[in-house]
Design a protein around this nucleic acid. Structure first.
Length: 587
DNA sequence: GCCGTTTTCGGCCCGACTGTTTTCAGTCG
């Protein structure tokens, strides 16, 4: 098994902890913490990124840590990183995993009581606390003993299976509480920030900021903590509060007067590395940034900002779309007025991957709505074209001539629909393990366009998988590679393939890479979107809808495209019909 | 150890909260 992102996060944090305890340069410790943070918030598996030779694209990982990771991925045994962690007793790292216990307190406890078994560390500490032993340590007291117990219990209860929400779930949760908060006229504005505003594929907790005048603060905070879905109040102060809602998810609320709203938006949108880099830049210019405004370091004069645009403008930095605030090169480009002009939802003019209920005897799940209904929905969305791409007929259920007949009949059914939307007869065809397509050759003449996707044998060697994909793409009828990595967020890993080779081949043959907008796929992942674009590939954004209502979800694909720095011209289904048709015809 | 729109050397984000202390250390986001 390859190390997961979580493994690497723990590894890097452990090295940072070991350095903290052995007393190395504090900035080296911070560098490891930043690196751990970068990996923790990566939306791709770091192992895959490493395998494809692109560790250098991750901001926060410098040459030295990259080299250590390279060694670790090749063979962890005896590697530098492993050796560093071994300098500290293993139970320390275990103990640190409970919230509120950092390296120093964990080390103190382990050392003072000579706890050497990582397997029993939590039990050991609990029984020490029961005997009131921890209170006796210098620097610890009654309350810290209690806090430590609470932290361990919390970790044991649910810390390990901490799950992040997919974007639409988090979005709905935010919308619900925003509606609730807006019942108060004192809340003049309220919006989600953090990873939700940056449209990250998964969301840990929900951050809200509301514009409230100081005299109404108490009332608003009280209203927030009285939310009916709150199962507990985590914290409550004059200007902020935090609740836990059903499902164990946290919602934080900060309130701010109108005149400081801009700096608060910037501060809580993040991400962390973006903020650090912006503040470092500002500091070189003599300014210190915080959530209340911009301070002139020399004079102490404070500037406040009602809008985020004004905040960035003060620093002579172009406003940066939240989706690309990742701590990479966006600040540099914003200074040069060279940010990309990201694709927007309104640019979308159609899509190529929806499943109708036409009974094609499909190999996988069939759609819920008729072709007509899907076309109607496309019309409502203002689309000018739509491709109906059901799964191919199951080879186990129909023979070749029956399959050909089904495709022909579907073409006729599509042609019969009266709609201003240009409908295309398409299919999503399985790529078989040997790279053959699961469709009789004669059927292709009834298709306007074809998507090919992998739906089986996800575990293959990188070489075999790459060959399999190239063989499928070599078929002249193929125009789109569907959900290329096959990942399902939180459920299935990405397949392993040499993406550079796949991208080069796709580019040469004018095959588009899909950004599948289904919220559990979001595939291509944004990191690969960015590389595909830099490589000169074209992409399409598709919903993979199995019901008309799901076609609204194209938005989530647009977010991924934006997070991958895609402009309108990179995305084929932003283009007018004639351009799309000439792409289909292979020009 | 990382990083760069006055630096490839010499700096390094910022504040809140908590607890155990009388001025700070540890942890977190």
């Amino acid at each position: 098994m390859h190390p997961t992102n979580k493994d690497i996060v723990i590894l890097l944090k452990s090295v940072a902890a070991a350095y903290t305890l052995t007393g190395v340069n504090q900035f080296r410790i911070i560098a490891y913490q930043k690196a751990a943070d970068a990996v923790e918030h990566l939306t791709q598996e770091i192992y895959d990124v490493w395998q494809n030779g692109h560790l250098d694209e991750i901001p926060g990982l410098g040459p030295i840590i990259r080299q250590h990771l390279d060694e670790y991925f090749t063979n962890p045994v005896g590697s530098y990183l492993e050796k560093q962690t071994q300098k500290i007793p293993a139970p320390v790292y275990k103990l640190m995993q409970s919230p509120g216990i950092g390296p120093k307190r964990a080390f103190r406890i382990v050392q003072e009581f000579k706890l050497d078994n990582p397997k029993t560390i939590f039990e050991d500490v609990k029984s020490l606390a029961a005997k009131n032993k921890i209170v006796e340590l210098e620097g610890f007291g009654e309350k810290s003993q209690k806090e430590i117990l609470k932290a361990i219990n919390l970790y044991e209860e649910r810390g390990q299976k901490e799950e992040r929400m997919v974007l639409p779930v988090a979005g709905q949760m935010a919308e619900d509480i925003i509606m609730y908060m807006k019942q108060l006229p004192e809340v003049s504005e309220i919006q989600p920030l953090g990873s939700l505003r940056r449209k990250a594929p998964t969301i840990g907790d929900i951050d809200l900021v509301a514009v409230v005048e100081q005299r109404n603060a108490e009332k608003v905070i009280n209203h927030f903590t009285a939310y009916s879905r709150a199962i507990s109040v985590q914290g409550k102060g004059d200007v902020k509060a935090s609740i836990m809602v059903t499902g164990g998810k946290r919602i934080d609320l900060d309130i701010i007067p109108r005149k400081r709203y801009g700096s608060m938006l910037q501060y809580f949108t993040g991400n962390k590395l973006h903020n650090i880099k912006l503040r470092e830049y500002a500091l070189r210019k003599g300014y210190s940034l915080n959530e209340f405004g911009i301070k002139e370091v020399k004079t102490g004069k404070m500037h406040t900002f009602e809008t985020e645009e004004a905040f960035y403008e003060f620093l002579h930095v172009d406003w940066i779309p939240p989706e690309i605030r990742e701590g990479g090169e966006e600040i540099k480009l914003a200074l040069q007025h060279a940010l990309p002009n990201l694709v927007e939802p309104k640019d979308m003019k159609g899509e190529f991957h929806v499943h109708s209920d036409f009974d094609i005897v499909p190999s996988h799940d069939i759609g819920m709505d008729s072709i007509e209904k899907m076309a109607k929905k496309a019309e409502e969305l203002g689309y000018i074209y739509l491709a109906l791409s059901e799964h191919n007929p199951a080879m186990s259920r129909v023979d070749e001539s029956q399959a050909v007949d089904l495709i022909r009949r579907k073409a006729e059914a599509v042609a019969k629909i009266k709609t201003p939307v240009k409908l295309l007869n398409s299919l999503e065809i399985d790529i078989q393990p040997n790279g053959d397509l699961a469709l009789a050759e004669d059927a292709f003449k009834y298709l306007d366009i074809a998507i090919v996707s992998i739906h089986s044998s996800f575990k293959m060697s990188r070489d075999d998988m790459t060959k399999r994909i190239l063989k499928a793409l070599a078929h002249p009828g193929v125009k789109i590679l569907g959900h290329p990595t096959g990942r399902q967020i939180g459920k299935r890993e990405e397949i392993e393939a040499d993406w550079q080779t796949v991208f080069d081949f796709a580019k040469k043959h004018h095959i588009a890479l899909e950004i599948n907008a289904w919220h559990e796929r979001l595939d291509l992942p944004e990191g690969l979107v960015r590389r595909a674009i830099q490589n000169g590939n074209k992409l399409v954004i598709n919903t993979d809808a199995h019901a008309a209502s799901q076609m609204d979800g194209l938005l989530y694909g647009v977010y991924v495209a934006r997070r991958g720095w895609a402009e309108k011209s990179d995305i084929i289904n932003t283009q007018p019909l004639d351009r799309v048709m000439s792409w289909i015809k292979g020009k």
